[in-house]
Design a protein around this nucleic acid. Structure first.
Lengths: 225, 225
DNA sequence: CCGTGGGCAATACAGGTGTATAGTCGGGAG
DNA sequence: CTCCCGACTATACACCTGTATTGCCCACGG
């Protein structure tokens, strides 16, 4: 360990003060947002002086950019390693990712609402993955490149990301942080339960009737619908 | 019109400078967050001086509280009026809500990630509504008060709210703002498509197998799973 | 008529923020 | 040893933010 980013899978060279600052910035940005985080707070959390933060990263924006790069690098690193070991299809891999990468996910979630370019890129990758999944699984229902699969994939990415962006409220209601390793599975099983039941509802006469009214009504963020 | 909040359904007395300030604050808070919004920016957007903002709302926190109250009031007002007119079950009502209350939804979404008490209360109401819906529709699958329905309802609220919190990314990918009246139906139909298909997947042997591994894996915010 | 209070604006002030600059310390190269 | 360069610190500065203070202006009641 040492670097908050990973589980000891980072080169020792990265454990310098510069890396400590970047890790502290990651936490502050994830917790307080790009605007709320302060350079002095980051410096204090990293145990260094304010000047050193500026010595390594010239400006706050550059520091944020470095955090963005570090996060996407860490994600790509884990995904490729998992792909190499064939763990990608393994159930429990995503649970592990949730458990070990809670900070990365929180950072990405906050960056998504703050609107960083890297977060937008990640969101786009998520939608691309969802689009691929949908088109491969139901080619006739979601023709590749169609507007329908594009809409569905975007909404899917937004909904799944929403469980991370709003993980604080989930933690409040569930009593435990769903990004902790030991509880990482709960929202996953809850999502499957939800999909099974709401899928039933969507294909029921009621759901079909609703969908048929093309003037259509959108989702209800609440419960009914 | 006059007040950004509603479609002219607010008392004239509310169209004072005080109301203009509150409406401008609503926009600023929704756009830049509680920390990013500035009193001077609000005053400028409202076309008044900084002193007047402070004259009507003593502090920034009090102004935010007033915005919270106004938003929940507006929502309750519309919901009760729709209930009185029997529009609640009508398809298209939620579309109308999305179309006319885009600002309110954006404000609530931002307040949810910023962590205001009112937003937490709204989130709790959403989960309560979802819990009620799930327990009524599938009483044996989601026994009232069970941990299972609590988890599912919380995740459902988070996912549906996610489409609003991340509506900016949705707008970027779809090319149009889903909170605009004319496109309000797209994410709704996309969600139904998604539920129909992912529900099929969740009840397929693959989905059941995944769910069976109780050590479980959580959701994939990306695509597969 | 006056004066009195509230909507409204201008300004002042203290604290925090990002940034720039000067300075200290230590270890390697000549 | 001397020099020098990079890590590191301390301080200063300009700006922005929320808040407090003061005063203007005008309608309204005596």
């Amino acid at each position: 360990m040492g670097s908050i980013l990973g589980a000891g899978d980072r080169p020792n060279e990265d454990l310098t003060a510069r890396a400590r600052i970047r890790d502290a910035a990651l936490v502050q940005f994830a917790e307080h947002g790009a605007k709320g985080a302060t350079l002095r707070g980051i410096a204090e959390a990293a145990g260094v002086s304010l000047g050193l933060v500026q010595h390594h990263f010239r400006s706050k924006e550059a520091l944020r950019q470095a955090c963005d790069d570090a996060v996407v690098d860490a994600f790509r690193h884990r995904l490729t390693r998992a792909a190499a070991e064939g763990d990608l299809g393994e159930p429990g891999f995503m649970a592990d990712l949730y458990g070990t990468s809670g900070l990365l996910l929180r950072y990405l979630a906050r960056a998504m609402v703050d609107g960083s370019p890297a977060a937008s890129a990640v969101f786009d990758e998520l939608t691309a993955g969802a689009e691929d999944f949908l088109s491969r699984t139901w080619p006739q229902r979601f023709p590749p490149g169609s507007a329908r699969v594009r809409d569905a994939a975007s909404v899917m990415a937004a909904m799944h990301s929403g469980t991370i962006v709003l993980h604080g409220h989930l933690a409040r209601r569930l009593g435990v942080d769903p990004l902790d390793r030991e509880h990482a599975a709960r929202i996953g099983t809850a999502m499957l339960d939800l999909y099974a039941s709401l899928g039933e509802f969507a294909t029921s006469p009621t759901g079909e009737r609703i969908r048929a009214s093309a003037a259509g009504h959108p989702c209800d963020p609440g419960g009914r619908q």
